[in-house]
Amino acid sequence: MGSHRRSPVSPRALTGQGARVTVLSAAFATAATTLAAAPAGAAPPERPERARAEVRRLYTEAERATQAYNGAGEKARTLRTALSRTQDRMARTQDRVNALREALAPVAGAQYRSGGLDPALMLLLSADPDGYLDQATTLERMGVVGEQRLRGLRDARRTLDQERREADALLGELERSRRTLARHKDTVRQRLARAKALLAALPEGERALDARASRSGRPDAGLPPTGAAASPHAAAALATARTALGSPYVWGANGPSRFDCSGLIQWSYARAGVGLPRTSQAQAGAGRRIPLSEARPGDLVVYRADASHIGLYAGGGRVIHAPYPGAPVRYDPVGMMPVSSVTRV
């Protein structure tokens, strides 16, 4: 018998090609319009510090949308896996239904040769025998073996109907997840396009958000971790994160050469043999909460009240993290922004 796996469901609504083109086109149009509003040489509409503050705000909003995008992507992957498993079960159940129908064929033939085919059996072998199956008296005409096969067919058909309903529900949820992904992607692109336009409107020497943002190479790569790590896998994760120093920030990326904040954490711990969720919010709950004063190298430091940013404690009052577009993976002071929690994995 061949594979039970059905060919992948690819309804037009799930491919989302048109939706993705629309989202990307809208984002690029937004960026082009914004950039066109600030031609080269034009006087900046705001003082540099106010413009940089607005860029920071836009980056914060983009990072929140990025974590929402990451979460929606993880959910979509889970749904696709569940749908694939349901389709496999449906294929196996359909094979069982077919086998039981074939097994009942000799019963039908025997009845026909002995004086005519029972109308009830004819109904059973049709597309929808369930209505008749509730009339148990007719089962007596089929004998014990026939009755068992008949009941088995009824159960298999009901299982198949249930699996079809589950698949339909998963398809609907997957479509909603696709729309959520597109919405968050659009938000990220719009915020980043606006931030890029604001920076482009500033004089060249005023565009960096901080002195380290424009450094090349591997910032602070020579600084060793300070203190004993929280565990062997925490030490391994920190060592892995150090190899990413200098790698660019790219929203939605989780390695091996580009990262967003939670992508760096997930990648570093995965290389240490520990699976962590994709979003900073989920990572914050992936271990035991400890006070910041007890943080040790390899612990997760979570920022902002909504846990939309995360870094890896490196000891000595520093974290390794992927900061924002234009700033590579680097060390920063642990108190660079409000700490909401510290998690030991």
Rank of each mutant, 00 (worst) to 15 (best):
V301H: 05
R47I: 03
V97I: 15
P297T: 03
Y324P: 01
V97Q: 11
A51I: 06
E63N: 14
R92F: 07
V329H: 04
H4M: 14
A43G: 05
T137E: 11
R158T: 04
Q190N: 07
L24H: 10
R158S: 11
Y249M: 01
R183P: 00
S7N: 02
R6T: 10
L121F: 07
L170K: 04
P232R: 13
T159N: 07
M90L: 14
N98C: 09
G222S: 07
Q111L: 13
R92I: 10
Q162P: 01
A213I: 02
A286V: 02
S308W: 02
T187Q: 13
R47C: 00
R215E: 14
G152T: 13
D155S: 09
Y303V: 10
T34C: 00
S10Q: 09
H321T: 05
G146R: 14
E166G: 01
A234E: 10
V301S: 10
R179L: 13
T187F: 00
T240Y: 00
D186L: 15
R5E: 03
W251A: 05
G273A: 03
A43Y: 02
S340H: 10
P224F: 00
A167L: 02
D155G: 09
R5A: 14
Y69H: 07
M122C: 01
D161C: 00
M336K: 11
D128Q: 08
G109P: 05
V107M: 01
R288E: 11
A167Q: 13
L125V: 06
T138H: 09
P106L: 08
A37E: 08
S268H: 08
A156C: 06
D118S: 14
R288V: 15
L104Q: 08
M142F: 15
S126A: 14
Y249C: 01
A40I: 03
L150E: 07
L209T: 07
Y132L: 12
A76Q: 13
R242S: 12
I265M: 13
E74P: 01
T15K: 05
R178A: 08
S262M: 11
R296Y: 05
G115L: 01
S177K: 09
E206W: 03
A36V: 02
A241S: 03
S126T: 13
A40R: 10
M1S: 14
R165P: 02
M90Q: 15
V97W: 05
T22E: 00
R191M: 02
Q135K: 15
R56H: 07
D95I: 12
A314D: 03
E49D: 13
T33A: 14
E166P: 07
L170E: 09
G109W: 03
A211V: 11
A167M: 06
P129W: 05
T93S: 10
E74F: 05
A213E: 14
